[in-house]
Amino acid sequence: MSQPTQGDVPIKSENDIVVVRRVVRDLVTRLSFGVTDVTRAVTGASELTRNISLYAGTGIMWWTTLDRHGAAGLELRFEGHGLGISDIELAMKPGHGTSHGLGLGLPGAKRLMDEMEIHSELGKGTTLTVRK
């Protein structure tokens, strides 16, 4: 039987940060990422899940495996069911954070991943897609 190519992890509390880490670690290990890229992907996913837990409260992470010109990749889509981000540019600045985090979740996660896109609608929440 072939392995699943997509799935999701609901994010309901900060306990789910560890669940997301485990799922992402298993996935990228299965995709034969090197140890440094495994750590980057897991750490980035951990920060983005923490963002949802801190700012949006609840959300979900969708994952899809990718075939990027013959190389295995992973796309993670983080949907936060919060109020949305009013100023994405500001949120991307290092040192910015409205909660008690370090304010480096977004720019830091972008450096750990290869690609990152943010879509936010006020009142509807934020979707953040990363690829590695």
């Binding site: 140890v35 440094t36 495994v38 750590t39 980057r40 750490t43 480096l104 830091g108 450096r111 750990l112």
Partner: peptide, 13 residues
């Protein structure tokens, strides 16, 4: 660990 050092530095921890 080296991989943790790299990730922590890129995250600017």
């Amino acid at each position: 660990r080296p991989s943790v050092v790299i990730a922590a530095t890129q995250l600017a921890l």
